[in-house]
């Protein structure tokens, strides 16, 4: 059978969702930000909630997320996205409100905002991209950088005495009464992406059920920051990140 006989509209089984814009993403080749954006966009399309969703982009590589998902967006000061989301949702309870934050944004400068938003049980979704590094500023240590991991500010590897320990903030978040769903996912292979999509959908659905905050961590790579190829970075993540940041649901009620 000729390829041209297969490539026909009626045979199409997967195409880019129209909720993703046609703008080429500024992310590095292989960066999972794109995959997670796509997953969120697909969930928005499948739930039919484009006109009811407000996204909040952080400071970090994903600051320009508003260029890629075709919904209304607000751009937050560094770490403050959960504070923005709190007010946006409380004033607009009919909207699906989500923050999209990296590890520096959420687990370092924005620790107070995310903890308190989750503790109040805001009916929002928090998407947390944990790649254990500051990508945008050039690969410095993040709160989630692993012990021994080399970054621009831990050139000899993260040393607990000098730099403290990697922060499992998702475990802390799961302890808070205000959260209803806390899960740790990844996006490095097809099965992981499909599971992530289910998690994101559940989180969005929760936000309309007055159950509290849904928190989805995505253990991710930063191949540029890690100085590996995209495929090598995925392997490094499986071998080094997953044993410490174990995948799965931490809380679901």
């Amino acid at each position: 059978m000729d390829v041209n006989d297969i490539i026909r509209p009626e045979n199409m089984v997967y195409a880019k969702t129209p909720i993703l814009t046609d703008t080429v993403m500024h992310y590095c080749p292989g960066c999972p930000h794109g995959t997670v954006h796509k997953v969120i966009a697909e969930v928005i399309e499948e739930m039919g909630i484009q006109d009811k969703t407000i996204g909040i982009s952080p400071v970090g590589c994903a600051v320009l997320a508003y260029n890629y998902i075709d919904i209304d967006w607000e751009q937050a000061a560094h770490g403050r996205a959960p504070a923005l989301a709190t007010a946006t949702k409380r004033l607009n309870p009919d909207k699906y409100v989500f923050t999209y934050q990296g590890d520096g944004d959420l687990a370092s400068i924005g620790t107070a905002e995310v903890m308190h938003a989750c503790n109040r049980g805001e009916n929002i979704v928090v998407i947390f991209i944990n790649n254990a590094i500051y990508g945008m500023t050039g690969g410095q240590m993040a709160p989630t950088t692993l012990l021994g991991q080399k970054t621009a500010t831990t050139p000899y590897g993260r040393d607990a005495k000098l730099n403290g320990y990697p922060l499992k903030i998702t475990e802390l978040i799961a302890q808070l009464e205000g959260t209803c769903y806390v899960t740790r996912q990844s996006a490095h292979n097809p099965a992981a992406v499909r599971k992530l999509k289910k998690a994101v959908r559940k989180a969005f659905e929760n936000s309309m059920m007055d159950k509290g905050t849904s928190f989805v961590e995505v253990v991710s790579t930063c191949n540029s920051g890690w100085k590996l190829s995209p495929v090598q970075a995925n392997k490094w993540m499986e071998e080094n990140m997953f044993p410490f940041y174990q995948l799965g649901d931490l809380k679901d009620r």
């Binding site: 997967y14 993403m25 992310y27 960066c31 794109g34 796509k38 490095h188 097809p190 499909r194």
Partner: peptide, 28 residues
């Protein structure tokens, strides 16, 4: 690109993991 087009089953794995959503998949 499809180096071995005869092998393709249209499973959508490639498109699912593509960070830039540049792959469209067809299946018969």
């Amino acid at each position: 690109y499809m180096e071995n087009p005869d092998n393709c089953t249209g499973c959508t794995n490639c498109a699912t993991v593509c960070p830039d959503a540049v792959i469209t998949v067809y299946r018969v």
